[in-house]
Nucleic acid binder design. Structure first.
Length: 734
DNA sequence: GCATCGGATTTTTTT
DNA sequence: AATCCGATGC
């Protein structure tokens, strides 16, 4: 194994060959983190003689898992059989299927993705007759997800307002439906596994015993549930090797908590800490800019990143007239280099904060007749026809799946409308059955009683029930694709999808594409197919064979590198995104996001902003350059940014005029208080009372032009934005 | 039960 | 600008 280590630098060697025990590797960007992980796995197996099946390696994304798998296989030449390597969710799925006996659901559960979650929450909201204007499914789900990430079930759901009480009710019903559907959502996979290990010592013992070595990638992005489950898995041998970088923590909104790094050191005080500081990716110029940006964040362990790649070229800053110009600049710059033969297509990546920003870029590429690869966004698995077909398969696999049943029971239309479905659901409830089981029963010999009870609705339902029953019989007898063809034939889906709309001839092609994927799972089975459908994101499905520039969000860019990187939309409200304006923690995360983007670049970096942009709604808006641009030392930059009155948007301009005329808004009491943090009185979740609107709960509050703007939610009235000094709001004690 | 229309509303990031 | 929802009419 000497030659294995000889390819590594000193710090990397130390990490790879570290003696067993807890280890924390803090790895700067481009410092060979994945390399260390894969070499460590290889080292354990080849040098220390650990059997592969006693090793668990966890990543966040499928992409990372696949990459590790490939590299380990290359290092060991296929001696890694039995190694558990996968994403958190796939590992949990594996454990949960084996240990289904301990769960509220059985082993052929299905996984609900975010669309399924939304459908289910909608149904709950409707059934509970809750005002759907005030309770948006995505918002409710965000709260539920947050709770689950913190290992809280419906009963532990924290209540701070009447709104929370309602959400708790929805959460509870939602969870009941999931169980009745023999289903779990993404968060449940983590939650169930963590609970399983916590509450059943015999199960915990089994896995903790088995996994002599645990390795974790992107540790800074773990949430509470993930941390807990790792903690229990490592409880026996304590050989847990985690790799992370606080500065690249960008999933706070998903419950990630980089404090888990500190928690790790507390829980495993004997842990060795290793820093990887040499960057092999970027030029010193790029690295310096990135360091300057990230140094503005407080509360972090400072790393001394260095590169031996030389200073390289200056960073180019381009200020476009508008967003249209921004896109053209990117495409022009790329095509010029291509024309001159200075670069190849796949050298380039273009990154942005939100998916919506890809639109103009795509147009520009198309106009220039150039290929591009778009990661994420237009989702194959999100297409209606694809989801329909998956829903059929899911229903066959697990007839209790309420969401899939509701989705396809009338697709293609077979005369089963909402009333008929509701009747069926009601009958099912009376019999203590799931809707799907009721439907199956209805289609069978013994369904007579139910048939009479349903009356006219039954005539429509019975044929579908029989069909479903038949498919289920087929499931165990014929190959998956044969079953698939049968479903398409029985339902007349081809005709239905081809007829529909007309313009999109690709739709049937998508269905056939899915059939092709199914073919690959012929040997493994439907369960594996469905799990892959749920857990494999779209970005994993893109062909990386196409030689073309890549378009992606900053989030998906993490872990990747490109010779040339464009980051567009470097304007306030875009990056940093406007939604993080009021929360310093979120602002710090925006900065980390930018840092992640900067450090993707190997040789050249282009930072682009636009003086004005078409707002997502309606007309043009003037932009201010991103505050992050100011943090890049000027000597690293070519090009400059400007700020002028013309660019100030109307709202802000009024405030400026006001100040020029009447002097800055300053309350007479506060003399020379520091300019920041003057006197915010209202904070989210506070209960307040208003003379006219009554009692409400503060959603948001911010200081603006010397006053405080408070957004308050009043039951029955909705959200109101109030100016604190004008509205005599009063804070209510608890 | 289904199609159509008009009005309202909007996701930041993803397993 | 595009999508979703609810109401309306057939």
């Amino acid at each position: 194994m000497a030659d294995l280590l000889s390819e590594l630098n000193q710090q990397q060697k130390t990490a790879v060959a570290v003696p067993p025990g807890p280890v924390l590797v803090l790895a700067g960007p481009g410092s060979g983190k994945t390399r260390v992980l894969t070499f460590r796995v290889a080292y354990l197996i080849a040098a220390m003689g650990i059997p592969a099946y006693q090793i668990l390696a966890v990543t966040f994304t499928n992409k990372a898992a696949r990459e590790m798998e490939g590299r380990v296989a290359a290092l060991l030449g296929g001696k890694a059989d039995g190694l558990w390597l996968g994403t958190f969710h796939s590992i949990c799925g594996r454990i949960l299927r084996r240990e289904a006996a301990y769960l509220p659901i059985d082993h052929n559960y299905v996984i609900f993705d975010s669309d399924d979650q939304v459908s289910l929450v909608k149904r709950v909201i409707k059934e509970k007759r809750i005002n759907n204007k005030d309770y948006r499914p995505t918002q409710v789900l965000a709260k539920i997800s947050q709770a689950k990430n913190d290992l809280m079930g419906p009963d532990e759901f924290p209540i701070f307002s009447t709104r929370d009480e309602t959400i708790k009710v929805i959460y509870k019903a939602y969870q009941e439906y999931l169980e009745a559907s023999n289903a779990m959502d993404f968060d449940d996979m983590l939650l169930y596994t963590a609970r399983l290990l916590e509450q059943h010592p015999e199960v915990r013992q089994k896995y903790a015993q088995r996994f002599r070595h645990i390795l974790v990638d992107e540790f800074q992005d773990t949430n509470q549930a993930q941390y807990t489950l790792l903690y229990y898995l490592a409880s026996q041998h304590k050989n847990i090797f985690v790799v992370g970088d606080e500065d690249q923590s960008i999933y706070r909104w998903r419950g990630a908590d980089y404090h888990n790094v500190e928690r790790f050191m507390k829980d495993f005080p004997e842990a060795k800490k290793i820093l990887l500081e040499q960057n092999y990716r970027s030029t010193q110029t790029i690295l310096n800019a990135a360091v300057a940006v990230i140094n503005e964040n407080t509360n972090r362990t400072e790393k001394k990143l260095f590169s031996d790649r030389g200073s390289g070229e200056e960073i180019v800053i381009y200020e476009a007239g508008d967003d249209y110009d921004e896109a053209s600049y990117v495409v022009d710059t790329i095509s010029r280099q291509l024309l001159l033969g200075q670069a190849k297509e796949s050298d380039f990546a273009i990154m942005y904060r939100t998916n919506a920003q890809s639109r103009l870029l795509e147009d520009a590429f198309r106009r220039a007749n150039m290929n591009y690869r778009l990661v994420g966004a237009q989702r194959f698995y999100g297409r209606r026809e694809v989801r329909d077909v998956i829903a059929f398969m899911r229903l066959i696999y697990n007839p209790q799946d309420e969401v899939s049943l509701a989705r396809v029971i009338n697709v293609p239309p077979r005369g089963i409308g909402s009333v008929t479905l509701e009747n069926l659901q009601e009958i099912a409830r009376q019999h203590g059955l799931s809707t799907g089981d009721a439907l199956l029963l209805l289609g069978s010999e013994s369904g007579k009683e139910m048939e009479t009870a349903l009356g006219r609705s039954a005539t429509r339902l019975i044929p579908f029930g029989r069909m479903l029953a038949d498919w289920r019989v087929q499931l165990s007898r014929v190959p998956l694709t044969t079953l698939f063809d049968q479903v398409m034939l029985d339902t007349g889906y081809e005709l239905y999808i081809k007829d529909d709309g007309g313009e999109d001839e690709d739709r049937w092609a998508n269905v056939l594409g899915l059939r092709q994927v199914l073919l690959e799972y012929e040997d493994q089975g439907l369960a594996e197919f469905l799990e892959a459908m749920a857990l494999v994101a779209d970005q994993d499905t893109l062909p990386d064979t196409l030689d073309a520039p890549t378009l992606m969000t900053l989030h998906t860019a993490k872990g990747l590198e490109f010779p040339q990187v464009f980051i567009i939309g470097l304007d306030e409200h875009y990056l940093p995104h406007s939604r993080s304006r009021d929360d310093p923690e979120e602002m710090a995360e925006e900065r980390r996001l930018f840092y992640v983007g900067l450090t993707r670049a190997k040789n050249r970096l282009f930072l682009i902003r636009a003086r004005r942009r078409r707002s997502p709604y309606g007309s043009y808006e003037s932009m201010q350059p991103s505050r992050f641009l100011e943090d890049i030392p000027v000597d690293l930059i070519r090009g400059r940014i400007t700020r002028s009155y013309e660019q100030v948007d109307a709202y802000e301009l009024n405030a400026i005029r006001w100040n020029q005329t009447y002097g800055p808004p300053k309350s007479s009491h506060q003399k020379s208080a520091p300019p920041a943090a003057p006197m915010q009185q209202f904070f989210p979740e506070m209960r307040v009372s208003h003379p006219v609107y009554g009692e409400g709960v503060v959603r948001k509050s911010r200081l603006e032009y010397g006053d405080e703007t408070v957004e308050v939610y009043f039951e029955g009235l909705g959200l109101k934005a109030l100016v604190a000094s004008m509205s005599s709001l009063e804070v209510l004690g608890d």
